[in-house]
Design a protein around this nucleic acid. Sequence first.
DNA 1: TATGTGAACGTTATAATATAACATAACGGT
DNA 2: ACCGTTATGTTATATTATAACGTTCACATA
Lengths: 128, 128
Amino acid sequence: MEPSLTNNQKIVLEALEDSEQPLGAYSILFNIEKKGIKSPQQVYRALDKLIEIGAVHKIESLNSYIACKHKDCKARESTSFLICQECQKVYEVLESDLSDKFIKLSQESNFKYFTHNLEIFGICDLCN
Amino acid sequence: MEPSLTNNQKIVLEALEDSEQPLGAYSILFNIEKKGIKSPQQVYRALDKLIEIGAVHKIESLNSYIACKHKDCKARESTSFLICQECQKVYEVLESDLSDKFIKLSQESNFKYFTHNLEIFGICDLCN
DNA sequence: TATGTGAACGTTATAATATAACATAACGGT
DNA sequence: ACCGTTATGTTATATTATAACGTTCACATA
């Protein structure tokens, strides 16, 4: 079932959906001030919730956020991205294959895999 | 040839080497104030250089830093870690195999791979 | 030995990212 | 209608990171 979003959450999510590139929290704030959002808290709280339900992902190495394009995304915790250094666009990778690979890799060190975060940097198809 | 470190760089590197866990920049600063380091700038500048030569890596999702345990580490840009959520220790993964995998993965999206950052979270051998 | 150049340094200030705390309001189930 | 949970508004503050500027150091070479 679809988790129903609150007003603030919708506003923040739309800001991210409207953007080609990932946005920082303050950049989101700037974009939606005209809609009545006044403080970082409001943005971060909405982001927290959106991330929790998988509607938004955080790009750790950029300290910024993207809307997930996949309906009801599985990637609540583990995420994998291709990040174009030319146009800054981020492409999410969904290969479940990857988790398997990382589980095996972890096992080699007797490490119990829970989640992962993969960020690949390079040049995307369009910029090539 | 070994790049020779300056005094500040040595101090910062030692602080990281002495720590079991990754340290934030301000945490490093706190640890080495008694050695005459007074400002964040000094720490960040040393970190920049140490990262550049591969002696230190940044854990993006923790905004913190670790000393690399491998002599003359290849991982100047691409890094892969196992991060224990129990004891906070970080284990670097050196499989060159991984880059190959990521290059192939990237190619599937016509994406030209440059570097990557992989952070796997779970429970380490010792904490299991 | 003088000197020019690039890197590193010291220092102060400030930017950018994120959370704490607290009182109030809205929502959903019984 | 009541209660507990979740979201909100707001102010303040913590944490992480850079800008800017003048000075000093290391070292190659004229």
